Amino acid sequence: MTDTHATAAPAAALVHAVRTGLAELADPRKAPDMQRYMKSDMPFRGVPTPERRALGRRLFAEYPLSDVDAWRATVLSLWREASFREERYLALDLTGHRRYADWQTPLLLPMYEELIVTGAWWDFVDELASRRIGPLLRAHRATVTPVMQRWANDPHLWRRRTSIICQLGSKEDTDTDLLIHCIEANLHDRDFFIRKGIGWALRQFAHVEPAWVRNFVDGHPTLSPLSRKEAMKHS
């Protein structure tokens, strides 16, 4: 049985250190422009990406988490209790830290799904889709493929975008049946992020299989002009 007090202590210490570190790096002059650019309801501290990542590297080394429960608790605390967007960025940075790579299993899908649904914007979702869900899919196809198939038909926009772009890094390991399924399920969606995501997914795969992508585009005349333009950008 997990000792909840032992789990909570390192999680709380790292969360406190992250908030303190961000406050020390805050630049109130930059924060409004960052918030406007991201069209975010949540305010920013005004911490640029390089400084934020450096802070994360330092703190993640200083406050190691000894088990997956403490790690998950820290991620969720940073995410759910965030007052500033950079806290959520650091939560995402923590999910991808190499120290915890062995904990990346399909058991994390519910956590990542929560971050996708509650984040509900491209800066969060694209990182999760391509760098968390994608590797899980490649390592655990039998488990994750049916989830992506369901998400492709989900009412929630960002689950659907995740299913479309989760194979951005797959290259020759791309599951073309899954790619077709996820795109065809969303062919008639007029949302910008869906149309852009379809084009992006096809463009990435075109680096490996340009002929396949050309044939797919030619065989799907109902692809939106945006999707078609993105897919054929380098052809």
Results as ranks from 00 to 15, higher is better:
R85K: 12
F216V: 08
R29E: 14
H207W: 11
H16K: 15
L78R: 04
F192A: 02
H220V: 13
D218E: 15
T176Y: 12
G197W: 00
P146A: 09
F216R: 07
T118L: 07
R150Q: 13
L55W: 05
F44A: 02
P48M: 03
F205E: 04
T176Q: 14
A6C: 10
R72F: 03
R98D: 13
L187E: 09
D93Q: 10
G56Y: 01
R53P: 11
V208L: 08
H140R: 06
I133H: 01
I198K: 04
T95R: 04
T95Q: 05
L168S: 06
W103I: 10
L128H: 03
K233L: 12
M1P: 15
E230K: 02
W158P: 00
A152H: 05
H181T: 06
A11T: 07
D173G: 15
C182D: 10
L76A: 09
H140K: 04
I165H: 02
H140E: 12
E127H: 14
V47E: 07
Q149P: 09
M111C: 05
A8S: 13
L78W: 01
Y100I: 00
W79Y: 03
V147A: 00
R85H: 12
T49Y: 14
K30G: 04
L94W: 02
T145L: 13
H234C: 08
A142T: 14
K30D: 12
A152C: 05
N153H: 14
A231E: 11
M111F: 03
Y112C: 01
A61W: 01
R141N: 01
L109K: 03
D218A: 15
I183R: 04
L92M: 12
L22N: 07
E62L: 13
E24W: 11
L226R: 06
R58Q: 14
P146S: 05
E62G: 03
P28R: 08
Y112L: 15
A82Q: 02
W212P: 01
V47F: 00
V68P: 10
G199W: 06
D27M: 05
L94F: 00
A73E: 12
P106L: 10
R80I: 00
A120F: 05
D177S: 12
G169M: 07
S235M: 11
L128E: 01
P135L: 05
L90W: 08
G21W: 00
R29L: 13
G219M: 04
N186D: 09
I180W: 15
W79V: 03
W158H: 05
L108V: 08
H234W: 12
S170W: 07
D189G: 01
H234R: 13
A139T: 13
R53M: 12
S130A: 15
A54T: 09
E114G: 00
R160Q: 00
L115C: 04
W151F: 02
F193P: 05
D154V: 03
V47P: 03
S130K: 13
G169I: 04
L22R: 10
G56E: 08
D175P: 06
C166H: 09
A231M: 09
R131E: 13
A6K: 11
V117Y: 09
T4G: 08
T222N: 13
V144A: 06
H5K: 15
V213E: 01
T2W: 07
Q167N: 04
W79H: 02
R36V: 11
L14A: 00
A82P: 03
W122Y: 03
P135W: 00
